[in-house]
Amino acid sequence: MRVAVVRFPGSNCDADTVRAARQAGADAFYVWHRETTLNGADAVIVPGGFAYGDHLRAGAIARFSPVMAAVRKLADAGAPVLGICNGFQVLCEAGMLPGALMRNAGQRFLSRPVTVRIENTDTPFTTAYANGAIFRMPVAHGEGRYVASDAVITDLEREGRVVLRYVDDNPNGSVNEIAGVCNPAGNIVGMMPHPERAADPALGETEGARVFESVLAGIAHSSGGPQ
C-alpha cells in the first residue's frame, strides 16, 4: 500500500496530504519532481499548492516535469491517481482529465468551507462513501471554476463522471456546480476541495478522510491485502 505524493517546487499541501494518507494506513512518501520513477507506488496523489509558482497559468509548467511522465505511465496501467486543488489543475493541463480550471467567478481567491455531494462511488477515491453523501470540506483557490465544452460536459454527466458537486452554494462559478471529475476509466480523479484538511476531529470536519480510506481499501482488495 504505497502512496506517492508528488512534490513540485511550490507544492504546499504535500505534508498535509502525506499525513492524511498515513492516518488512513498508507505507506505514504514524497516523490520529487525531478524523479523519473515512483518508487513502486500503488497510487499517486498530486497535492495542492502553487507548483512552479503557477507561473504562466496554474499547472502549466508542472505538466512538463519529469515525474509527470511516470505518473501518466502508472495511470495508463490503471493505478489510482488523485489531483487535489492545484493537483487537479495539473492533471487537466496534462490532458489526463478533461476541462480546465479558470479564475473564480468572483475574481478573488476564496478560502472557506463548502458543502459537497458524492455523485459517483465507483472511483478508487470514493468507494468508502455512501452514494449521495453530503459533507463539508474547505476550498482555498483563486482558479477553481471548472469549465469544459458543452460536449465534454454532456459526456461527463451522461457517464456519471462528475464525482463531486457543490451543494447549495457554488463558490467559484463552476459549470453544473462541478467540484470533481474522473477520466473515462475512473482511475484518475481531480477535485478542488481539500479532503486532507477535513480528516481530523480536532479541526472539525472529518469526512474527507474517506477519500484516503477508499484508495487504501481498493488497493488492499486488488493486491490481496496489506503487503
Binding site: 499541501c13 505534508a15 499525513r19 495542492g48 478573488r108 478560502s111 472557506r112 481539500h194 484538511r197 479541526l203
Partner: peptide
Amino acid sequence: FEQYDSTVQASTVNGPGHDAGVVRIPGTS
C-alpha cells in the same frame, strides 16, 4: 479573510473570525 488561505497545513483549530486564532502543533495536542 476569505481571501487568505486559513486551512493549509491542516492544523487550524480556530481560523479567522474568532477571539483568537488557534493552530495545533502537528503530531501533538
